[in-house]
Amino acid sequence: MEDLNSRYGLNQAHSEVVQACAVITPCDALDMGCSSGRNALYLSQRGFRVTAVDANPQAIATLQSIVDQEGIQTIAPQVYDIQQADIGADYGFIACTVTLMFIDPSRVGAVLADMQQRTLPGGYNLIVCAMDTAEYPCPMNFPFTLKPGELSAQYQGWDLVKYNEDLGTMHNGAQLQFATMLARKP
């Protein structure tokens, strides 16, 4: 299978999205904060039907151009600000990787609640988000960061397939702690 991400100069799919595909059967998926579509393209090539949303019209235009050039029927790019917390459809898999930290902190609870409500029973949420902790103060000036245990607490009653709060490296080389979670809705 040809790697469309390299063909179009995009970064590879997020490693957690790649790992989640080992667990999740292809289904209707939502890529929240898709940027130019690195995760959406990866998921599409693995049989998922992907709605890819981002608040940046340029990013969506880039992804739409790739979709058009490749004749991809399984990606629907849409300009959408996830802070609205009104997804409007149900999904078997919702991925939100390195996106929450760019939104208004007062909207995070509503966004997570909407994600949970719009996940089908037995479906999955994947979240990777920066943290700000005493041991590892966040070096980036993100509008929002998670505190220890905050993300897992939001998913009480879900099966945490994977959960950690490990150190990671941003693409710019900054070291910071990330909360990484793949949770299955009962």
Rank of each mutant, 00 (worst) to 15 (best):
M1K: 11
E2K: 15
N11D: 15
E16C: 12
E16T: 14
C21L: 11
V23D: 07
I24V: 15
C27Q: 08
A29E: 05
L30Q: 01
R38Y: 06
L41A: 13
L43N: 09
R46Q: 13
F48Q: 05
T51K: 13
T51G: 01
A52V: 05
A55K: 10
N56C: 12
Q58N: 01
A59K: 09
I60G: 03
I66D: 10
V79Q: 13
V79W: 09
V79Y: 05
V79G: 10
I82E: 09
I82M: 15
Q83L: 02
D86F: 00
D86M: 00
G92W: 02
G92D: 03
F93H: 07
F93N: 08
D104P: 03
G109W: 00
A110R: 13
V111P: 03
V111M: 05
L112H: 01
D114H: 07
M115S: 00
Q117Y: 00
L120F: 00
L120N: 10
Y124K: 00
M131D: 04
D132S: 08
C138V: 02
C138F: 02
P139H: 05
M140I: 14
F142T: 00
F144Q: 10
L151V: 14
A153F: 03
Q154W: 12
D159H: 14
V161E: 12
V161H: 12
K162Q: 15
K162F: 14
T169G: 09
A183Q: 09
K185D: 12
K185N: 13
P186G: 14
